[in-house]
């Protein structure tokens, strides 16, 4: 879950940076689908009547970041990728728009990396996730009963418990679990999504649900630092879906592209240099809005 969550973090960071730029340049846009808070489409944009799918790429290799910061033209022969299954779905029409963005930044993947960034006074976001359907409320939507956390470590543990209540509303509860002792979550959770720690817990944390009659042990190695140590955001360019269809080619999973050593899925792909400039899109939208 660590790499997947950091990709989500990077994608939202790029999208928010783009929205700030649109605001600063008085380019009007709508936010679509702000429905349930778990909906992934919450951050989707609509510009000038066209739906926008922002595709973000997270560049984490130090040499690549150095090259990119020195010369942004490094991006021109990176790949504008759209996963083929998404491309073939009917979520976007041919007049809708793909925008391609990049975040250059570092990850703290290993526990030693997290220790180093803490020593340097940098932020961390340590998250342990729950993948079992019962804890996530997927098997049955019912209260998890009393949730009790046991801290196996020698120091009090400051945590945040994140989940959902009966009406699927977000619940975030701070909780301090004393050393080698228990503490109960006050809120009645129907789904337990994550625990967050502010320091790397040196020992295990056992989570007990009175309704499930089960205990889930979170080990020290289960904490993922999902903070992204960003440096630069680039918005490379855009094409309509119809244009992208004409100009892109199929790229098998496992292919090397400039920004990734191996792609994870089958994509449609074209070089970044074949896109249209984002300033042109902004100008068109302003013209559209003033008509």
């Amino acid at each position: 879950p660590g790499p997947r969550l950091r990709k989500i973090v990077a994608g939202v960071a790029v999208e928010l940076a783009l929205r700030r730029w649109l605001d600063a340049n008085q380019v009007p846009y709508d936010l679509l689908g702000a429905t349930a808070f778990t909906e992934r489409d919450k951050y989707d944009l609509r510009l000038g009547g066209r739906r926008v799918d922002l595709k973000s790429f997270f560049i984490t290799d130090r040499d690549d970041i150095t090259a990119l910061r020195h010369d942004p033209g490094w991006l021109l022969d990176a790949a504008a990728l759209v996963p083929e299954d998404q491309f073939n779905s009917h979520k976007l029409e041919d007049g809708d728009v793909y925008v391609f963005g990049f975040l250059a930044g570092l990850e703290a993947r290993q526990q030693a990396d997290t220790r180093r960034v803490l020593d340097a006074g940098q932020p961390v976001e340590l998250v342990a996730t729950f993948v079992d359907d019962d804890w996530l409320g997927r098997a049955q939507w019912r209260s998890l009963g009393t949730l009790t956390l046991h801290n196996d470590g020698p120091l009090p543990l400051e945590l945040e418990v994140g989940g959902q209540g009966r009406d699927r509303e977000a619940i975030v509860e701070p909780l301090v679990v004393p050393a080698e002792a228990r503490a109960a979550v006050a809120a009645r959770l129907y789904a337990l999504l994550y625990l967050r720690a502010f320091q790397p817990p040196p020992a295990g944390v056992d989570v007990r649900s009175s309704a499930l009659h089960r205990t889930h042990s979170v080990l020290p190695s289960d904490w993922h630092n999902i903070w992204v140590y960003g440096m630069d955001v680039f918005i490379a360019g855009w094409l309509t879906k119809g244009e992208f269809r004409e100009r892109s080619r199929r790229l098998p999973a496992g292919s090397r592209v400039k920004q990734y050593p191996r792609t994870q899925t089958v994509n449609r792909s074209l070089p970044i240099r074949d896109l249209r400039p984002i300033t042109e899109l902004a100008r068109r939208i302003k013209d559209f809005a003033s008509r």
Binding site: V12, L193, A236
Partner: peptide
């Protein structure tokens, strides 16, 4: 065809990551 001058470089600050982190946790 894009040139390097067409690429839009935007400032980064931690509030971008903070927004992403809060979103990622809720998307679990």
């Amino acid at each position: 065809m894009l040139t390097a001058l067409d690429l839009l470089r935007l400032p980064y600050d931690d509030s971008l990551t903070r927004a992403g982190v809060e979103y990622a946790k809720k998307s679990l």
